[in-house]
C-alpha cells in the first residue's frame, strides 16, 4: 500500500470539502472543490484508495502544487 499525495493543479480558494477521511475513493472521485476565477474545479483522487488525510479546509487559499490530501492506494 503506497501513500499518494493529492496535489492541486491550480491556485484557488477551497470552496467545499466533499469527501471524508476513511472514505474509499474511486479514481477521479472528487475530494474537494476549488473556486478560482469564477470557476469551480474539483481536486480528485488520482487513483483508487482510502482517504487518509485532508490537509486543507473550506476557505483556505491553496497555490498550484499544494498537497491537499493523502490517499492509501
Amino acid at each position: 500500500m503506497a501513500t499518494v499525495d493529492v496535489k492541486t493543479e491550480i491556485t484557488g480558494n477551497v470552496w467545499k470539502v466533499v469527501a471524508s477521511v476513511g472514505d474509499v475513493l474511486e479514481e477521479e472521485a472528487p475530494i474537494l472543490i476549488l473556486e478560482s476565477m469564477k470557476m469551480e474545479i474539483p481536486v480528485s483522487a488520482p487513483e483508487k484508495g482510502v482517504l487518509m488525510e485532508i490537509l486543507a479546509k473550506e476557505g483556505d487559499v491553496v497555490t498550484e502544487g499544494t498537497v491537499v490530501a493523502r490517499l492509501k492506494a
Binding site: 493543479e9 491550480i10 491556485t11 476565477m37
Partner: peptide
C-alpha cells in the same frame, strides 16, 4: 485572460 489554454483554459492566478 489569466489562464492556460493548453490545460483547458484553467485559471492561472499569480
Amino acid at each position: 485572460y489569466a489562464e492556460n489554454p493548453a490545460k483547458m483554459f484553467m485559471p492561472s492566478p499569480g
